[in-house]
C-alpha cells in the first residue's frame, strides 16, 4: 500500500476550528480499547482523525474532520461515536466542495 500523508492533503483545506468544543466524541474509550477488534474508524476516516495507539486505545482529534459521517455509520457493532455537526459557521469551509 502506498504511504500517504493525509495531513498534507488537509493542509490545503480551510477550517474554522471550534477550539475546545469537538463536535464528535468517542462515547466510551474503554469500548474501543478493550472490546472493538476491528477499529474501522482508524482506516475508514478520510481525514485520518482516528488513530490506533500502540496500547490498543483509539484517539480522536476532530480538527481535520470533513464532516462526512463515515465514523458514525461504520461503528455498527458498538455505536460508540457521538456525532453532531459543528456549531453554525464552524468546522470545514469548502472552497470548492
Amino acid at each position: 500500500m502506498m504511504r500517504v500523508n493525509v495531513e498534507e492533503k488537509l493542509f490545503q483545506n480551510r477550517y474554522k476550528v471550534d477550539a475546545g468544543r469537538p463536535h464528535i466524541q468517542i462515547r466510551d474509550p474503554d469500548v474501543c480499547r478493550s472490546q472493538c477488534q476491528a477499529q474501522q474508524c482508524t482506516t475508514c476516516c478520510p481525514a485520518g482523525c482516528y488513530t490506533a495507539e500502540g496500547n490498543g486505545a483509539v484517539t480522536l482529534i476532530t480538527d481535520g474532520c470533513l464532516e462526512c459521517g463515515t465514523c458514525r455509520v461504520i461503528c455498527t457493532e458498538f455505536r460508540n461515536v457521538d456525532w453532531e455537526y459543528p456549531r453554525g459557521g464552524f468546522g470545514i469551509l469548502f472552497k470548492f466542495g
Binding site: M1, V6, A38, T43, G48
Partner: peptide, 10 residues
C-alpha cells in the same frame, strides 16, 4: 472500505 481497511486517501 470497512472490510478491506484501505484508507480512502490511499
Amino acid at each position: 472500505f470497512a472490510a478491506q481497511k484501505i484508507p480512502p486517501y490511499v
